[in-house]
Design a binder for these strands. Structure first.
Lengths: 192, 192
DNA sequence: ATGATACGTTCACTTAGGTTAAGAAATGAG
DNA sequence: CTCATTTCTTAACCTAAGTGAACGTATCAT
C-alpha cells in the first residue's frame, strides 16, 4: 500500500531510503469506513488527505441539500480550503467507499519540509500541476453543456459513474438528479 | 510600479534589499498595448505573467467562437497550463486594456529559486492559495445559476463589469451574450 | 468623414434544465 | 426477512437558456 504513496511522490522528486523511512515513521496511514465524515462544515482543521484506495467526496450543505462538488480517488491529494486559509470549513469531506488514506497535518508537513527541502519542491510542483489541471477542468465546464459534461466524464473518469451514486454525480455536473436521469435516457434514445 | 510587485510578494515572504535588487535586475517589466496577444493556441511557451496594471484575458477558439474563461487584473499571477505541462497551449492570452505586466520564464524562475530558496516557499504558498481559491470559485459556479453567478460577480469583481466587453463576460459566466443581455433586463425588471 | 466591422439589445421560437410529485427499485437496519 | 429509507426514474408543467435574425450604435481603419 505504501508503494502507491511512493509511486506518487516519485512523479515529482526522487527519495532516498532515509527519506522514505522518515515518511513511514510519521505513521500517516488510516483505514476509513464508508460514510465516515473526515471534515465538517465550520470545523477548523489542519488535516490534508491522500487517497491510496477508495473515494472521498467534498460536499456543501445548501438549504438542507447536499451539493457535491468534487471526488478524490486513487492517487489524488486533497488539502481543504480551510487548511490553507486557516478558517472555518465551508464544506464537508466524507468517505464514499471503505478507503485507505493518509492523514497529515500542517505542522508535520512544515517539519518535514524544513528537514528535507526537497519536499518543498514537491509541494510546489504538485500545487502548480493541480492548479493548472483544475483551471482546464473549470474551462471545460464553463464552455460545455450538462450533456457534454456527462459525455466528458464518461471518457475521463468512467470509474466514477460506477462507484458513485447518481444524485452525487448530478450536482458534480452542476445539475439536478432528475435532469441527469432524463439526460441519460435522451442519450440512449439518440444512439438507437 | 515595482512597489505593487513587492507588496504582492510581501504577502508570502519577506525580502531583503539584496533579494529585491536581484529581482529588479531581471528586468521583468513590460508595457503591453490593448489587443496584444501574449500567448497563442498551439504555442510552446515558458512565460508566466503578473499583472501590475491592466487586464489580461484567457480565451479558447471553439468553432470559430472566442470563449473567454478567465480574467487577470491587478495583483493576479498567471502561469499558463502549457508552461506547467510543457505542451502546446490550448488557449490564447490577450490584453484587454493597455497594461503593465511582468513577464518571466521557467528558466529564470528556476535560477532564482535555487539562488534564494525562499522563493520556492513563496511559489508553493502562492500555488496552494490560488488552488484553494480556485476550487471555491469552481464550487460556487457549479452550485449556482447564471443569474446568481452574475449577481455574485457584481459583488466580487464589480470592476470587471465596467472594463470588459459584455460578450466576453457572458462566456466567463458560461452563457451566450444574448442571454446575459436578457438576464440583465430581467433583473432590472424585478427591482422596479 | 465614411464605410465596414464589431457590439449590444430585442424578439420569436426551440430546447433543455428546474420543479413538483408519484411510484419503482435498491439499500440498510433491526 | 421485513420494514423504512434512500435512490433512481418518469412525467407534466414551468422557466430560462440557446438560436437565428434584425436593428441600432459604437468603434476602428482608411
Amino acid at each position: 500500500m505504501k508503494d502507491i504513496l511512493f509511486d506518487f511522490i516519485a512523479k515529482y522528486i526522487t527519495l532516498t531510503e532515509e527519506e522514505k523511512e522518515a515518511i513511514l515513521a510519521l505513521d500517516l496511514f488510516r483505514s476509513v469506513k464508508k460514510g465516515t465524515i473526515l471534515l465538517k462544515e465550520g470545523q477548523y482543521s489542519k488535516e490534508s488527505f491522500f487517497v491510496l484506495k477508495g473515494c472521498l467526496r467534498v460536499y456543501y450543505l445548501i438549504d438542507g441539500e447536499e451539493k457535491t462538488t468534487a471526488f478524490y480517488t486513487e492517487m489524488d491529494a486533497l488539502t481543504p480550503h480551510c487548511v490553507i486559509q486557516d478558517a472555518a470549513s465551508e464544506y464537508f469531506v466524507s468517505c464514499v467507499e471503505d478507503s485507505i488514506i493518509t492523514v497529515s497535518n500542517t505542522d508535520m508537513e512544515a517539519e518535514i519540509n524544513t528537514k528535507f527541502p526537497k519536499f518543498e519542491l514537491m509541494c510546489r510542483k504538485l500545487s502548480e500541476q493541480l492548479l493548472a489541471r483544475h483551471q482546464i477542468d473549470f474551462d471545460e465546464f464553463k464552455t460545455s453543456s450538462p450533456e457534454q459534461r456527462y459525455q466528458n466524464l464518461l471518457i475521463k473518469r468512467p470509474d466514477l459513474i460506477q462507484r458513485v451514486p447518481q444524485h452525487q454525480l448530478a450536482s458534480y455536473l452542476g445539475i439536478q438528479p432528475q435532469s441527469l436521469s432524463r439526460l441519460r435516457a435522451r442519450m440512449l434514445e439518440k444512439k438507437s
